[in-house]
Amino acid sequence: MKKRLEVLKTYKIYIGGKFPRTESGRYYLLEGKNKKPLANICRGSRKDFRNSVVAARKAFSGWSGRTAYNRGQILYRIAEMLEGRREQFVSELILQGDSAAKAEKEVNISIDRFIYYAGWSDKYIQLFSSVNPVASPHFNFSVPEPTGVVTMIAPEESGLLGLISVIAPVIVGGNTCVVLASHSKPLCAVSFAEVLHSSDVPGGVVNMLTGFRSELLDNFSTHMDVNAVIYCGDDKKEGKRVMENSSLNVKRPHIINTKDWTKEKAQDPYQILDTQEIKTTWHPIGI
């Protein structure tokens, strides 16, 4: 008897809550073990990137305006959806070359990491705020507020856990983002976008592109409507380039060079603080 023909998945990019193919019509072939073709991955263009920034900017006021509790709920929902699709993520990681045990572990930690950051949503503000005892009759307080639109060059080596570890602290803090997924391990990133899509995350909060770092690095770091850029990797030249480009509009550049994303040190509230601005407000105290 003939085996049932498997329905293959088309891996698309995710912009403004929709899954288009790249406007450029280009692709690159992702190969698995023994050069087995896995998928035609969208080779995102600078126009895709531009559209993503527009979508992220549009989504910003709504997302940053949500209550902390609500953002926590949505991040928790993301973890729930991840849990429900864990088998898919495990198999994608295996397809991309991981052992079953390693894949299992990476998915577990990824889910837990979202739970971790979901829990921070209504606490990091308390942690990083202050009431300042000024020497005049004024009430004065400082609170963190999201920086705005953040672009991210996601970790190349860690297609799911690394990706999640940089996205979660950015969006829990009310930012919106445009992410360039790992070039060599993009499957989980696209599937993760599908998880986001089914987790009450408003369209445009996370925009997921696939493609070539070398092609998009400058756009990610020069765009004048981007407020911060996170570069994951240890390429000194690329890192320098990102930082130089950031100076065009005084973007906040962050170079993250984490080797092992499974460690507990790879998560902490100070990563939320990286894409926050401290706002100080004064008001007289009188009658």
Binding site: P137, H138, P284, I285, G286, I287
Partner: peptide, 11 residues
């Protein structure tokens, strides 16, 4: 309906 007065500002 006069404008409000801010005590600290006046002081």
């Amino acid at each position: 309906n006069p404008p409000p007065v801010d005590q600290i500002g006046i002081e």
